[in-house]
Design a protein around this nucleic acid. Structure first.
Lengths: 231, 231
DNA sequence: AATTTTTTTTACACATTTCTTAAGGGTATC
DNA sequence: GATACCCTTAAGAAATGTGTAAAAAAAATT
């Protein structure tokens, strides 16, 4: 938790943008700026901001259009900032998935408080509730619970074992090379020595497979890597 | 999903309360009313509203006090409705965990839109955290009363111990990492030192478990964190 | 101001995990 | 069938993580 959240400001009026940018930077948020809708939409996938401050009056795309596009694929929190205080505008934006709507001119401390509120929602530890799991034959991996079961019986895996198994499961059907796995788990600067991986795989198989010598779940691709059977 | 959400209105001025009640009922929400803070706090655990509309100017307890009490055990969405539009009031309420702050007089369609927004959050994010009791084997945690019992016998937990236990209980079945817990209890800027957590866990287990060396309720995931057994 | 309670720090024994080393066994190639 | 290569398995050493006790510091209570 060294750095605070990254916030994207979508605002065409430079002075306002600068003002908000300074305010946010003084509170140690990471700040990105987009001057129009197109720019905003192209920046979001690559920069993955934790929150978007969206002005409605943009030169190209309407802010509402930006919001629509955005909500079609992500639930990144969006606070709409607008000069228009009409109720219909507020209702439209909120119903399209905006998380809050602030009318200009606004106080900086209110803006900051509303940002904190929106971020609180998205970073709550309870927000990972989506039941994401991998099942194949008798093997089940419940990622949110970090729980592996064989025929409904819990199997205890160590940290590294669990990471290897879930990495393979997330690419089930595809071969992951030894380098892939080592780079992912021990970082890019680790020695590319497969031995440790083999030892771990032996231990994993002893825990998961009925007969480790004839695996059902994780197959060896000789000279290449390992592959988890597909769902 | 036959019936729409249940909303508790906390408001001492009868005409305003009636007006909001009618508005909400016309949109088929379930409506409850509390005329003061005490009443609100006693109604919430028993009626479990899906959302609270909280007026700040109450005859007995300050609305802020109500919010504080409420947030000590539940994350039920709260929209503060207030005649006071001062920034400091807004910031205070939002930082105490209010999800939104609307200044009177407000338009009904804006109110409804903000209610929809708040409910959207709670059903996608916190779903399941609005329980006010956790039971498993002989252990029972009553969140509104802040009471922990083992086989109906009260167990005294210190502040931190209680927070750790209830945090784990609210994510029962899931592993919470050391970082999760430390960040949640000591804030994001705390040193990530697990020792204090280990000490607390030892004390908690001494109080809850028959045999602390072979826990029934809270399990250790070596290298990862702790997990409360599921209900 | 003194006492009690709670929280944090320190120290250490013990348990688990991770890594290294080494032996053994397939399989393909010559 | 010998050789080389790679994979599996076992066993133990090294590194890391965990639980407990006790003392110190901080906070709350009287």
């Amino acid at each position: 938790m060294s750095m605070k959240a990254k916030i994207l400001i979508v605002e065409d009026e430079v002075p306002i943008c600068n003002f908000i940018e300074m305010t946010l930077k003084s509170k140690e948020y990471g700040v990105l700026c987009a001057k129009n809708g197109q720019e905003a939409l192209s920046m979001i996938p690559s920069h993955c901001p934790d929150l978007v401050l969206l002005d409605l009056g943009l030169p190209d795309l309407d802010g509402i259009t930006v919001l629509k596009h955005l909500r079609s694929w992500t639930s990144t929190p969006v606070i709409v900032v607008s000069a228009r205080g009409d109720e219909t505008d507020k209702v439209e934006a909120l119903d399209l998935g905006a998380d809050d709507y602030i009318v200009k001119p606004f106080g900086t401390s209110e803006l900051l408080a509303r940002i904190r509120t929106a971020l609180r929602h998205s970073t709550s530890i309870h927000s990972g509730t989506t039941q994401n799991q991998f099942c194949v034959k008798g093997l089940k991996i419940d990622f949110p619970k970090r729980l592996v079961t064989i025929d409904s019986k819990e199997v205890h895996l160590t940290q590294i074992e669990y990471k290897i198994v879930s990495l393979l499961a997330k690419s089930a059907g595809r071969v992951l090379t030894y380098d892939n796995i080592i780079t992912e788990l021990w970082g890019p600067y680790a020695l590319k020595d497969n031995q440790i991986l083999r030892v771990n795989m032996a231990n994993i198989r002893r825990k998961l497979e009925k007969n480790p010598a004839a695996p059902e779940y994780i197959f060896t691709e000789v000279g290449v890597g390992y592959r988890m059977v597909e769902e």
